[in-house]
Nucleic acid binder design. Structure first.
Lengths: 300, 300
DNA sequence: CGGGCCTGTGAACATCCTGTTACCTCGGGC
DNA sequence: GCCCGAGGTAACAGGATGTTCACAGGCCCG
């Protein structure tokens, strides 16, 4: 009974459901099946969701699955023939964290129970709606994600600075810059969009969660604090660039190799305190045509 | 409205401690349903398995479920009437770690998808075999435990302290620190994520099993108790580091960088401005024995 | 070349967060 | 029932962080 109901209708109407499952991004799954129709429809949906996926038409040894680094696997046990149970067992043993969704033809209660006991996370009976398959895969993956969420985010490096989401902190040559939460969120946001200019409003709404009221200078102030700490820890680099009338852009650019006569000690009076901001005025690349260009940082 | 049967041992179902037990033992689940036949058969099976279980015949507010400290809940959405979706949603929000198995009459794909998206872990259509219900509950619970345990088998050592999951205790130079259950769970959780900052909310939800309400200071208080005991037993080391506005990070860091004859009663010399700010800012330096190991970031 | 708008800066001020302590409740063991 | 330890809550103080202001310097446009 492939229900003739449109899943999109209701699923979409409940706005919260979408919010609850933003995990839909960057999932990697594999489908082991031979039912071309099923595969085709499912693949299309997976494409639309932007999940990385792969179709396997013939049994692969559990060891091979290991190297695929999957989040979940959808499998029709029929493809595996009589080896199905032992295959499933070995797979579950090898990859206890892999989400396994069995999606296969008619079966007995005993079979389903056996599969689930061996380690399958869910069992769907064909024929079934691809939307339900996807929802169940999401459900299976959800829990694992919840507890792994922070680990998966990998560190980003730009210039001398390394941003580690797992520590809510940025480092320069292995030494913490001592960023506060907001400062970290800001640098993380900017860095994750490296090369792209982010408008103030966007920065604000993504950090503060609500729309910025006119005249609010919070973003500027935090940019300043961030620049200050970055400059102190990594004086030879510039990371945050102002785009007049627009916002900010993150990009590591080396300063060294400028003119040797530019000695910090000879800075115009009044700038001495923490100096070093000399290199700044000329960054007026502005939102000009060449903005995406990576500066040929005169680094020889 | 409720029939209660006790089978297993007490003990909050939260935290890692439970995970140490075999999955078939000491599970605590509730069944929210009115189908007496179904309930009766299921109860019998649950009894036989020795699972602590409880039958609810009428809707209970999600808040009430929180206090039941369940591992999983089997629910017929029909009992909830039109409130079903919002009830489910609130429940999932309050208890992100609760296993929720919907077991209800005929439904559309859209309904199933919606339920799963809202946070249900599985959806079974009645009529169904109780054995399958049980297998699916087990599967759901298994997945949850898999993520919350993992470090149970092997002892962890950091600095002078050794954490032995098999004894629910931590030792310094072979001598027990005398941690209580929660204290142990806390240190185990923190240590198992060494190097990574854990947010308060995450700590709370993994130790207490439900979502932390704003203003709850339990985590802080337990951190303090833990620090106190650690400090008393291992004065020359710092283990738990505060990340302001975020949470805590576990890492063994030795204080005796300089002269060992410096008595701890006075401020530890060589510690920057003062000992007060020890909680932060001191990320990189003072490498503990094994602390700065990088995680395998390459995944995906 | 001048004005108007935008951004950088520093500091004051208001809030929020955490450390710490004291106190209360609950459940067991005697 | 009583005592005691563990867990949970409330309250306070000090410090860290976030926000707001005012002013100075810079950029763009006419």
């Amino acid at each position: 009974m492939t229900a003739s109901v449109r899943a999109g209708a209701e699923g979409g109407s409940s706005g919260t459901s979408e919010a609850a499952a933003p995990s839909s991004a960057s999932l990697r799954i594999a489908v082991l099946d031979r039912d071309s129709g099923f595969i085709q429809v499912l693949s299309k949906r997976l494409d639309r969701l932007g999940w990385e996926h792969r179709v396997l038409a013939s049994p692969v040894p559990p060891e091979a699955v290991v190297s695929m680094r999957l989040s979940a696997l959808v499998v029709d046990l029929a493809v595996l023939g009589p080896q199905a149970w032992s295959w499933l067992e070995r797979l579950c043993e090898a990859l206890p964290d892999l989400g396994i969704v069995v999606c296969t033809g008619p079966s007995t209660v005993a079979q389903r129970v056996r599969g689930l006991r061996l380690g399958a996370d869910d069992w769907i009976t064909k024929p079934c709606h691809p939307e339900e398959v996807i929802a169940r895969v999401q459900s299976v993956v959800r829990r694992r994600r919840r507890t792994t969420s922070r680990t998966d985010t990998k560190p980003v490096t730009a210039g001398e600075v390394e941003i580690r989401p797992d520590r809510f902190q940025a480092y320069v040559t292995g030494h913490s810059i001592d960023l506060t939460r907001r400062e970290f969120e800001l640098i993380e946001l900017l860095a994750s969009a490296e090369g792209r200019v982010l408008e103030r409003e966007e920065i604000y709404s993504r950090l503060w969660g609500y729309t910025m009221v006119r005249g609010d200078r919070s973003v500027d102030v935090f940019v300043r604090k961030l620049r200050q700490k970055l400059e102190k820890a990594s004086p030879q680099w510039r990371y945050i660039h102002t785009h007049f009338g627009i916002g900010y852009r993150f990009a590591a650019e080396s300063l060294e190799v400028v003119d040797p006569r530019d000695v910090p000690s000879s800075l115009p009076a009044g700038w001495g305190a923490d100096g070093a901001k000399d290199g700044r005025g000329d960054e007026g690349e502005l939102a000009g045509p060449q903005q995406d260009e990576q500066f040929a940082t005169g680094s020889l």
